[in-house]
Structure formats: C-alpha cells, structure tokens
C-alpha cells in the first residue's frame, strides 16, 4: 500500500506555542481519511503545512512522493480551505473556467457544476450566492484540476443537513474513482460516517489513529443508564464495582465502566429501585472525549 501523504516528526511552533508537536501521520492512497480534533488542536496548521502554505519548524512532509510545496504537486492537489470569499465581478461559470485554465488536465465544466450542484447558478455572480452555495463553488474550484489528492479543511461548515448528505455522497464517489481524500473536522459523527481512517489530534499531537471500529474498541468503556426510585449520592455511585465515571442527565444516571456485566448485577441487587435500565456499547464520541482528555 502506498501513502499519499507522509508526515514525519512534524512540528510547527509560533513563538513559544506548539501548534503541532512532533506528529507522525500517514494517509493511504485511495482512502478517505479524517483529521479529527477539537478546535485549536492543530488540524488547519497541519493541512497548511501539507499544502506548503506554511513551513514546518521541523520534520518532513512527503506528498504524492514529493516534498510538500513543490510546484508540480499543485497540478495534482485540490484544496478547500476555510474562509475564502468568492471573486467579485465574476459568474460561477467564469470562476470555474478560470480555475480550469490553471490545470493541464481539468475536469469538464459540466462535471464541476454537476459535482457541486450549481447548474442552476452557473450564470449568477459568485458574490451573489448564499453561504452554502459559495462553499459548494469553492469545492468545485478545488476539483477543477481533476486532483488525485483532495484536502478539505472543515468542508461542511455552513451547509445544511441535506447539503451535507449530498456532499458526503459526492466525496464517496470521488474516492471510488481512486482519489485520496483527507479532511479535517471537529464533528465525530461525520468522521465516523465517511472516513476509512481517522487520526485524532489533540493539543498538537496524534492522540489515536485507526479505523472508526478500532478507535471505538480502544476505548473499552461501556455505559449503563438508568433511573432510580431513591436519591443517590455521588459517593454511592462511585462505590459500585468498576465505575470509572458517571454523569447525571435530569433523573437519568449514566455510569461508565469497562465491565458492565458485573455492574448490572450490582445495580439490580442494590435495592435502589432501578428502572429504565439500558446498556450501551462505546460510541466514537466517548472514545474521542476520553482520548482527547488524556493529553
């Protein structure tokens, strides 16, 4: 298996702040990979370095077999960055034709309009589009060069649920053509739903890496939720066998433990008038919270 992107010992320092701290990452060719992490974890900085927009303080990045930032790579990469406004004075069609002119082997205008769902807006001024439509135009711009590698920085910000669904369908289609997709997101459900491989980043480091299933298994905590007939103190809950932590949501109590079988037994024998008992297997959300808090 070859890798589209390989980051080795990558660090980026702004003054005394370590935005990215000795990261090793590899993204396989032809897969959809997600860089998942809370805001400020270093995702955008990592993407910027992969794109050659920022120079690493130390470490190396290899993109499509070349050092990051090489001119030739730009022919083969498409990138969707955050917060880019559309060029004023040009229509959607004109913007896309302009971007097509930059590349040796561009996708057709019809395909770009189709992928971004902007056929109806082709003749409208880019500056007159709605926020979601502008984002889709930016997405179409990033695909103009028929890229082998697509980097998406928080791609679905500003899209409604329906648009998101269509967007992920498009991404899957693009990946099915053999393209590599790397995206950043702080939304777990998205990463879980679309990515083949997830790297969780927290405080500038890789906290965990693997397929969504592997990550869920890594945090072995399961949870039990129930309601009780009597008032239970925090100490009473923590005395239960194997309880790592608990949460209260209204009168629902959630207990987290590695072995829920023993815990269920203890609860039923406690005489606390337990009802509405539910056992849940780990969610990625839980894995994410645990992994990012370890740092």
């Amino acid at each position: 298996m070859t890798y589209a992107i390989e980051c080795t010992g990558l660090s980026k320092q702004f003054g005394s702040f370590h935005a990215v701290n000795d990261i090793n990452l590899r993204f396989k060719q032809g897969q959809i990979s997600a860089l998942l992490g809370p805001n400020g974890a270093g995702k955008t900085t990592t993407i910027s370095m992969i794109l050659g927009l920022q120079k690493p303080t130390s470490g190396s990045i290899n993109v499509l077999g070349m050092p990051a930032g090489t001119k030739e790579i730009r022919q083969r990469i498409g990138a969707l960055m955050q917060d880019v406004k559309a060029a004023d004075g040009l229509t959607v069609k004109e913007v896309l034709e302009l971007f097509r002119s930059y590349y040796r082997n561009p996708l057709s205008l019809a395909r770009l309009l189709d992928l971004s769902g902007l056929q109806q807006e082709a003749k409208r001024r880019a500056s007159a589009l709605s926020g979601g439509q502008r984002r889709r135009l930016a997405f179409a711009q990033s695909l103009a060069g028929n890229p082998e590698l697509i980097l998406l920085d928080e791609p679905t910000v500003g899209m409604d649920i329906e648009a998101r669904g269509r967007f992920w369908d498009t991404i899957r289609t693009l990946a099915a053509d053999g393209r590599t997709v790397v995206l950043t997101t702080h939304d777990l459900t998205e990463a879980d739903g679309v990515a083949d491989h997830i790297a969780i980043i927290a405080a500038g480091r890789v906290a965990a890496e693997g397929t969504p299933a592997q990550l869920k298994a890594q945090s072995a905590l399961r949870s039990i939720s129930f309601r009780s007939g009597c008032d239970l103190s925090d100490a009473q809950l923590m005395q239960l066998p194997g309880v790592v932590k608990f949460e209260r949501h209204a009168d629902h109590i959630h207990l987290y433990a590695e072995n829920t079988d023993i815990l269920v037994g203890a609860l039923l024998q406690s005489g606390w008038g337990i009802y509405d008992l539910e056992i849940q297997s780990a969610k990625l959300e839980e894995a994410f919270r645990i992994l990012t808090n370890q740092q």
Binding site: L51, L53, K71, R74, Q75, I77, A79, M81, D83, V84, K85, A87, F99, Y102, Y103, Q141, G145
Partner: peptide
C-alpha cells in the same frame, strides 16, 4: 484579506 491570494497559491497559477 479575503484569502483569495492564499487560494491562488494552492493552484499552479504562478
């Protein structure tokens, strides 16, 4: 300011 310059730096446009 609007990031247009940064965006163009990602394309093969010199």
């Amino acid at each position: 300011r609007d990031g247009w310059v940064r965006l163009l730096r990602l394309t093969p446009l010199t």
